[in-house]
Simulated scan of single mutants.
Amino acid sequence: MLGDNLYLVILLAGVGILALVVNYILTTREQQSEARRERLNWLQTQAEHTLSALAILKETGCRQDIVDKLNQHAMALIEEISLLAPDSELMTQVGDLKETSDRSRPDRTRFNSDRAVKRAQIYINFAEKLIIQMAKAGKMTGQLARTYQQELYWLNVSLVADAHQHQATRLMDMGDKHTALSHLKHAKAVLVRAGVPQRQKQPKLDELQVSIDRIQPKRDWGAGALADSLDDYLNDSP
């Protein structure tokens, strides 16, 4: 009788231990599966945004070293996706995006509408934030990251100015000089406010001023310092 009870106790203990082991394995697998899903969702978002940003940067004629650095980041994301979900629909989608990005070429004519410019700005801003994250992760020096940030900032500014200039040209061809002049002055104001060295923006400012003067010739106030000052003020006003 005592032996039967002891056997029963051992059997129950064994069943309990087995149940705990099975529960632990199932719980661990669920946690791993959930962690994998979360990681894949994050990788998908990052890869899609990075590849879209790369396409925009290539179309806007961004510096090649910036493109190369972001492309390295995109490849690392794709490689991790291929390890976690090699035959998944996600891998196919990301692969298609990568091919589209690789085919992108400089083409500023794509950014002549407000919608296209806004979309480009979103991805340029994303690229700028990504550069900061990469620097914090030790993937580039802080100095290089600041240089890239300045380049992306100027790319953003010049993109907006160029879009206004294109609109002005189109409106001039339609005979709407007043609205064209407004676009040119907006472009000039964007450049004047830009926080970059004067030598960097001066060529574009000079080009815009020629177009503005063609529509609105400088007034002849006669000789004198006061007249010159007034003339400069009127031309510099956005």
Rank of each mutant, 00 (worst) to 15 (best):
Q165G: 00
H178A: 13
H186G: 03
A189P: 01
A137F: 10
K139Q: 14
L155N: 11
I131C: 14
K136G: 09
N156I: 10
V190W: 00
Y148H: 09
A187P: 03
D162K: 00
L184K: 03
M134K: 14
H178N: 11
A137Q: 15
L130I: 02
E151Y: 07
M174Q: 14
H164C: 11
D176W: 12
A161F: 01
K177R: 14
A168Y: 00
M172Y: 01
L181G: 06
Q150M: 14
D173P: 02
A180R: 07
K136E: 15
M140L: 15
T147I: 10
S182M: 13
G142K: 07
V190E: 00
A189H: 05
H183I: 01
M174V: 13
R170M: 09
L191D: 01
A187Y: 03
A189N: 10
T179K: 07
I131W: 09
S158P: 05
T147C: 03
L159F: 04
L184F: 07
K136A: 15
S182Y: 10
K188C: 02
L181C: 05
I131Y: 12
T141W: 07
Q133N: 15
Y153E: 12
A189I: 00
K188N: 05
T179Y: 10
L159Y: 03
H183K: 05
G142C: 05
L184T: 07
I132Q: 14
T179H: 10
Q167M: 04
W154P: 07
Q149N: 13
Q167N: 09
Q167T: 01
A145V: 05
Q143F: 08
A180I: 06
W154R: 09
Y153M: 10
Q165K: 01
S158C: 10
S158K: 08
V157M: 06
L184R: 03
G138I: 11
A168K: 00
T141K: 13
K139P: 04
Q167V: 00
W154V: 10
V160H: 08
N156H: 13
G142D: 06
V160T: 09
M140A: 10
L130P: 04
A145R: 03
H164Q: 14
G138N: 09
L155W: 04
A135S: 15
A189D: 08
A187C: 04
G142M: 07
V160I: 14
T179D: 08
A135D: 11
